Computed example of a mutant assay.
Amino acid sequence: MAKSPTDVVQAAFRCYRSQDREAALALYAEDFSFTSPQDDHLDKEAFFERCFPTADRFVEQRMLHVVPADEELVLVHYEYELTTGDRYRNVEAITVRDGLVREVQVFFGGKVGARG
């Protein structure tokens, strides 16, 4: 039975946190694209070289919402704590087609608990 886009996204996050690169590679399409405020349309190779190995910065990552927006798009809202003790929240818009992650767009949130 095929996995839902939400299942694929949750599996990708688990692979990232556990740093299971081999299992993660199988979840991403060859034409994958990653964009964030710090990265502009990285391809699969650049993403796995530059972004994937960064899980050790996190003490904790909690999924707050994992919501299908349509049949391909999943919105993920999560909170994480860095090894510095700072906490943040981000949102990711993740496109999954044919059981593979095709695109990730990350939108950085502010520090949790920060006063403006």
Rank of each mutant, 00 (worst) to 15 (best):
Y88R: 14
V104C: 02
E79Q: 15
M1K: 15
C15K: 03
R14G: 04
R62S: 06
E72N: 14
G116V: 14
F107C: 12
K111R: 15
M1W: 13
E92Y: 07
R17E: 10
L27G: 06
R102D: 07
G113V: 12
A11R: 13
Q10F: 10
L82I: 04
E60N: 15
D31S: 10
V106W: 01
Y16P: 00
E30F: 07
D31M: 04
E71R: 14
F108N: 12
E30S: 14
R14I: 06
D39H: 15
E60D: 15
T83R: 15
A46L: 11
E60I: 06
Y78V: 05
L42F: 15
D31G: 05
R14T: 11
D56M: 02
T54G: 05
D39C: 10
E103P: 01
D86K: 13
A93W: 08
E72V: 11
M63K: 07
K111M: 13
E45Q: 09
T95G: 01
E45C: 00
N90M: 00
S33P: 05
T54Y: 05
V91H: 06
R21C: 01
V104R: 05
F34C: 00
E30K: 10
R14Q: 10
C15N: 11
D40G: 05
Y16A: 08
V106Q: 03
N90Q: 00
Y78E: 15
V104K: 03
